[in-house]
């Protein structure tokens, strides 16, 4: 194979990016994977061991439980955000409310709000004296469903995390869905309407089939982002169960248990790489075409 001048230029232009990726992403990843077997690239002593994996996979392992909790809460947050976001984007597409043009900027604010600030803002709403907590608990107690206030933040059910995540992910979902929905030929909708289709039929027969790849890919992006984000579960999560990334953080900073942190890291990589691969492999190129 002959390397042409064009190839050489491509390589030179891409080289800094590759060096960056190797040093700052690839080496750390190798370090995590080797570290989970007890092999240390930069530390002092190495000993080959499977102890981390035994501990992780043990039936009463807090790590395994934590992984399930992470996936479970992230999945719920994703479903809520995607459903609400898609419906709202469709509403904007069909009705084209004139007021929207004036307020749409507000909608982008959560996209640029630091997660830690978002998490903190929701904490102030959900802690026992926060507005939402007062309203929800007041309502539930008046209805006689509960007898003492329900903890809505730092709670064992992940309610606080859900509130914080959905606030950001809903907006992301709307902003991603809005583009592809605008690309749909409005004549299709007029045609369907004149043939007697109702709004629900238009959604299920026109909108969803034409945007299905962007729905799948957006779900993947949101699920991955929710699983990976640390700030929200760190601030809004309870003392137990915790997101796996919070466990990893605590292992590294408080107990210095690098072996378990690395092992959890490997499982985290496997979980997100699998998800990422499935979705990106089959949808990304189509989505780029759809959203552009």
């Amino acid at each position: 194979m002959k390397i042409t001048k064009e190839d050489l230029i491509s390589i030179i232009f891409l080289l800094p990016l590759y060096i960056f990726l190797i040093v700052v992403v690839f080496i750390p990843l190798v370090n995590v994977v080797l570290g989970s077997f007890g092999i240390s690239l930069f530390g002092e002593e190495s000993r080959l061991t499977l102890e981390g994996y035994y501990k992780f996979m043990a039936p009463d392992s807090p790590y395994l439980y934590s992984l399930f909790f992470t996936i479970y809460i992230s999945a719920i947050a994703t479903v809520i955000s995607i459903l609400a976001g898609y419906l709202f984007a469709i509403y904007l597409t069909i009705k084209k409310p004139p007021v929207w043009r004036r307020v749409s900027t507000i909608m982008t604010i959560p996209l640029f709000t630091p997660y830690i600030v978002g998490a903190f803002m929701w904490w102030t709403l959900l802690f026992p004296r926060g507005y939402i907590s007062l309203v929800i608990n007041g309502l539930l107690m008046r209805l006689g469903l509960i007898h003492e206030p329900l903890p809505l933040v730092n709670d064992p059910y992940g309610i606080g995390i859900l509130f914080g995540e959905v606030w950001i992910r809903f907006v992301i979902a709307v902003s991603i869905f809005y583009g592809p929905l605008q690309m749909i030929n409005p004549e299709l909708i007029d045609a369907a309407r004149s043939l007697g289709a109702n709004t629900w039929q238009i959604i299920t027969k026109i909108f969803i089939p034409l945007t299905k790849y962007s729905i799948i890919a957006t779900s993947a992006i949101i699920l991955l982002a929710t699983m990976a984000g640390v700030s929200i579960p760190l601030v809004l999560g309870g003392s137990w169960p915790q997101f796996l990334n919070v466990m990893i953080y605590l292992d590294v900073t408080t107990t210095f248990n690098y072996l378990m942190a690395f092992t959890s890291g490997v499982f985290y990589i496997i979980a997100s790489a699998t998800l990422g691969y499935i979705f990106f492999r089959f949808t990304m190129r189509r989505v780029i075409i759809q959203t552009r």
Partner: peptide, 10 residues
């Protein structure tokens, strides 16, 4: 798709 925390501990 990689959790930032994993890169961080690496």
């Amino acid at each position: 798709a990689l959790p930032v925390i994993v890169i961080g501990i690496g």
